[in-house]
Design a binder for these strands. Structure first.
Lengths: 336, 336
DNA sequence: CTGAAAGCGCTTACAG
DNA sequence: CTGAAAGCGCTTACAG
């Protein structure tokens, strides 16, 4: 492998001059610059990343840390990973993806060894064990999700309260008076998936304000529990004319479950889901949905992180931003 | 951040001694070792990754390069990413995940700058443009998938020929004489997804040997084309008693598509799919399947790559290994 | 059993 | 407009 010294020798200049051509931090005469660029081309020179990192204390790598819960609906995860990766690259960063079972340890290891310039945390929980090592770290971090104590970190998440209100309002406008809500499984709430109660509580409150009867039930993430929880929920409110599903695994299986029960949408039951456009497409879901916008969250988060890395001081106080959901009417609700 | 010099000073030894305690490449007296370890603990010292990489020419990072095709069924991808990540970590490597649209360029950039010690290529095509920069690279690479000219690279893939024979044999044993095969879309074959024709050709050949009539049709990856292609395939062979589906997007939507058409499985139609256990679970697929084993492929590939990195010379000639599919009988086929 | 020193390949103040 | 030199934080032959 050619080094900067080889290039310098070939071009008849000093190593510093080559370095300045590379960085553009100095004006170099056109002629010299040309000679150097020719030498770079000829030798196929690429600066050594480790050496550069050592000299600059910057790696141009971001760390993405995520855990795959046994009980989680995996297909939903990729929608968050991709935009983070794409945006990182667009901003000039590569991405270290870490799925170590001991994520807190992995964060400690990779930040303190300066493998990464910044940290992206996915699927953040209310009391997230990963925040502690992050506070010790010198690198800035951004959270996708919502933690109780996010002090010091930029956070981005969907406004699940608003999502719930949008779903309830949509049904209220169509005259529905009894609604069943299927939430994520209880264990998701237990481990601190705040979107569970943020959505549920807002839905309950909004329904009450409309004078609507809303019955909330935890769904499941596996078969056959998914079907059982759906039955339980529907049985609990026999007069329900609408169903709000805030549960990936359930909504993915819903078309078949309803078919099997002979329930037609929207004739027998209006349905509103909570999922992204991509998710709806992958599973060919025919339901009107409040959209979760993972692309936008990933983009915003990475852009903010990069801003902090570039200028830690002037980037201002940490931002906690809840973004407004989208809405995609697929005609699965009717007026009653 | 504490450096190795800080630790050395605190422990009253030289930097080299600290380094040797870290690497274990020298016997250090118990007493000295203890003092050093205490200092490391006290100062919270972690070796700087860049400095270490510069000194050793090793980063302990593997690169995973994947492209998300517009027309691809994304949910299937994650099953390959996860085992690669998990196995890498278990082998002591972190993982750089690269999704640059210009993957060949990204490979060139990350290998020649020595950001990675080895390369994992996912979703390899028959004439894969990523192989060229890989040949220039100093780092070893492993392919998951099948390329025409994989000379010089270790490759792992499912034995799709065997997968096809297993599916056909299974149906043959049950007396089926007319079978429809739904393949991946044509454009997948066009861009070199060799599994398309490896499966199809083997299925056709095997069916012929059994004296079975097999009619192969390209499926689609999007709605509503998926439904149309299914109809076309079934119409083409009205007497068919069985359907083999080698198409992720189609098989994921199949329960509903068949329901809508009033086709009961297995009473009206026997169905055999080609998908992994995890995929079947995520989409609650009730079909007997030839299993694609992404976990095993990821593990084997990374393990082999690590072996090559550790000992480039003695690892022997490149291996091209087609692994035998699994089989999961979910009772979706019957005797006719 | 341990240390002094060279070297990995860059960047960047300092100097001219 | 360009160069000589120090320094980033490690590892490892060389020496004792």
């Amino acid at each position: 492998m050619a080094t900067i010294g080889d290039v310098a020798r070939a071009a008849g200049v000093s190593r510093s001059t080559v370095s300045y051509v590379l960085s553009g931090k100095r004006v170099i005469s056109a002629e010299t610059k040309e000679r150097i660029e020719a030498a770079i081309e000829l030798l196929g020179f690429t600066p050594n990343a480790g050496a550069r990192a050592l000299a600059t204390s910057r790696t141009n790598v971001l760390g993405l840390y995520l855990q795959f819960q046994e009980d989680e609906f995996a297909p939903a995860m990729l929608q968050y990973i991709l935009p983070v990766s794409t945006t990182s690259r667009a901003e000039g960063y590569d991405l270290l993806m870490v799925t170590d079972p001991d994520l807190a340890g992995a964060i400690r290891r990779t930040t303190s060894s300066h493998m990464v310039d910044g940290v992206v945390l996915l699927d953040v929980t209310y009391h997230d064990a990963r925040l502690e090592p992050l506070r010790q770290a010198q690198q800035p971090a951004v959270l996708i999700g919502y933690a109780q104590d996010s002090a010091g970190f930029d956070s981005f998440d969907l406004d699940f309260g608003e999502a719930a209100r949008m779903a309830v309002d949509h049904l209220a406008e169509r005259g529905h008076r009894e609604i069943v809500l299927l939430t994520p499984p209880d264990h998701v709430a237990t481990r601190g998936g705040s979107y569970v109660w943020r959505f549920r509580d807002a839905a309950i409150e909004r329904a009450a304000r409309h004078g609507i009867r809303l019955s909330a039930h935890p769904g499941a993430s596996r078969h056959p529990e998914i079907a059982e929880s759906l039955d339980r929920a529907l049985d609990a409110l026999p007069g329900a004319t609408a169903l709000i599903v805030h549960n990936d695994a359930t909504v993915a299986a819903l078309p078949r479950l309803l078919d099997e029960r002979g329930i037609r949408v929207p004739q027998d039951l209006s349905v509103v889901g909570v999922f992204s456009q991509g998710f709806g497409q992958a599973f060919s879901l025919p339901y009107t949905a409040v959209e979760s916008l993972p692309d936008r969250l990933g983009e915003l988060a990475v852009a903010q992180l990069v801003r902090r890395i570039a200028d830690p001081s002037s980037a201002g106080a940490p931002v906690v931003r809840l973004i407004e959901p989208g809405f995609f009417d697929r005609g699965s609700t009717r007026a009653v």
